[in-house]
Design a binder for these strands. Sequence first.
DNA 1: CATCGTGGTCGAAACGTTTCGTGAAAAAGT
DNA 2: ACTTTTTCACGAAACGTTTCGACCACGATG
Lengths: 349, 349
Amino acid sequence: MATIKDVAVKAGVAISTVSAVINRSAPVSEDVIARVEAAISAIGYLPHGAAKALRSGNSRLIGVILPDITNPFFSMVARVIETVCMKAGYMTFVYNTDEDPQHEMHILRMMRMQRVAGMILISTRSDAEHGRRLMAEINVPTVLFSSAVPVTPYDAITLDERKASRLAIDYLAGLGHRRIGVVSGRPLVSTHEERLESCLEALAAHGIPPQPDLIVAANFDQQQAFEATRALLALPDPPTAIFAFSNLMLIGVMRALVTSGRSCPRDISLVGVGDFDWPEIMNPQVTVVSMPAAQMAEFTIATLLAEIAGKRPPTGKRTLFPPELIVRASCASAELMPSQKRRQPARAE
Amino acid sequence: MATIKDVAVKAGVAISTVSAVINRSAPVSEDVIARVEAAISAIGYLPHGAAKALRSGNSRLIGVILPDITNPFFSMVARVIETVCMKAGYMTFVYNTDEDPQHEMHILRMMRMQRVAGMILISTRSDAEHGRRLMAEINVPTVLFSSAVPVTPYDAITLDERKASRLAIDYLAGLGHRRIGVVSGRPLVSTHEERLESCLEALAAHGIPPQPDLIVAANFDQQQAFEATRALLALPDPPTAIFAFSNLMLIGVMRALVTSGRSCPRDISLVGVGDFDWPEIMNPQVTVVSMPAAQMAEFTIATLLAEIAGKRPPTGKRTLFPPELIVRASCASAELMPSQKRRQPARAE
DNA sequence: CATCGTGGTCGAAACGTTTCGTGAAAAAGT
DNA sequence: ACTTTTTCACGAAACGTTTCGACCACGATG
């Protein structure tokens, strides 16, 4: 491979001069610029990223750590980040954790070895102990997305989780539902904790006491949501509506409904959080609490870039974005439902 | 940040000795190993990736270039690659091209600046001119996935595209369909060209002459497939079945059906290529030609890793994987369809 | 006329590793 | 007891850049 030295001899100038024209870091005469550029394209020179990074102490690399790129929400976020970063002259490493804290630590280590200039961390555990281990491992500008880890000095960008729950529960309760199943996420994840807490508050506000048997945790996992819903439906007095904490879990719930021969919204109503790209092709078209995902992603990467540039120091603050209820066809009034007596408990299995 | 030198002084040994214990690249006494390891964890030393890469000439980086990570097919492939690479001690750069050749070239350049050890290139244009430009830019072990560029020395892993078309057309023709719409991809992409060619062959084998007005190209794009389908449905004599060349385009077709008030499979039958994760929640559940995506991805990365390790030189050969027809509920016998006379042409717009 | 920038160029040091040749000490062979 | 081999540790060079101080020529300033 050609090096900067080859360019220098070909153009008949010093190495440092070539560097100056490449980076426009010092004044160079028109004449020399032309010669150097000619030499560069003549021998097909491409700077060596690692050498640049080593010497300049700036890798121009950004790490993105997320639960699962297979989830359309995260892949969309990753694309936004990639695009913005590329424009700013940064490359991105995107890595999946599957929400496994140990794996997450490993990835963090790899990113630090690459001396990333900054990181975006999505949806990790958020208990204090994990927070401390995280902080020990991170010492690079970082912003948290879609989750809030306590006791960190890092900025966080999230949905207004409490409002999201309220939107869903108010809607369902407004339709007359009193037995509302909640397919929640994973304990210790802030998204889960906050949504769950305000779910209970919203239910209470409608005079509905906590019904522990209707609240199941499915770890933000599609298959677990499927199984949890099967269990919910097998209850002697099953819920008339279900609120699922994520898009993938909503899919799990829907699969459980078709497997059990339930029709939505005739037999049961459904609300999820997180929208889908093509709701028209789903059966039924689901009512969801949507989030301004693209804007959130843009704000996140802008915050990180500003912090890296040293323009804005980390404030440790949290920025909330407002959710929105999108009503489609997966909910019906509780009064219009066929009486629960008429329906048999799901066949034993 | 701590350097290897700090470790060396802390452990009271030479720098080269520390390097030897980190990389197990030379015999070191138990005693010294212990001292060095203690020093490493004491000061929290992490090797500097760029320095390693620069000196050793091995970045341990692999580039993955794909059209769009948002497409579930590609995100799944990316995950498989990430996992396998991580086990082999490589990190991955995943980048989106949106099938834009110019952007693709730019990404290629960035990857070469990072001195990636190898690349996986997915679904690019495959005409000879682009192939030449590509070859000028690439000089690193590479394997092509899901597309074949002619005149390259690189291995390619693809579906057996001809069989995929045959499976779909045989099935549809077997149901009695004679007017079969084809929502194809993008000219110059091998996947498109081969599928289209064998579509025509398969149609001919069933005594169906080419019907140019029923064949539309939608660039593998969901929205374009939507529009193309609208046009197809507005034809005086619309098709009774549609074959879409990709998962996303199939979604576009389905959206067009919904928007036009067509019911599938009553009014029109549908086959796509590429399966969906949760077909149960779709309306209707689609019949598709599926591909063994995970196995293909594993084979691809294994091939690349072997080539990087120098175990297997690039053969320039192409490996085909067999597609499979998965029959679900989106196709009906042409004879059972309401007569086409009874149906009005789609309302003008 | 002496002095002071200033635009343009250069050479060399440094970034944090790996690698290779050297050599001392210990182990093995005669 | 003397060589030969093996084992372990070391020092220094090199990887391809950036960056900084030095230098020179030249026009501007006092």
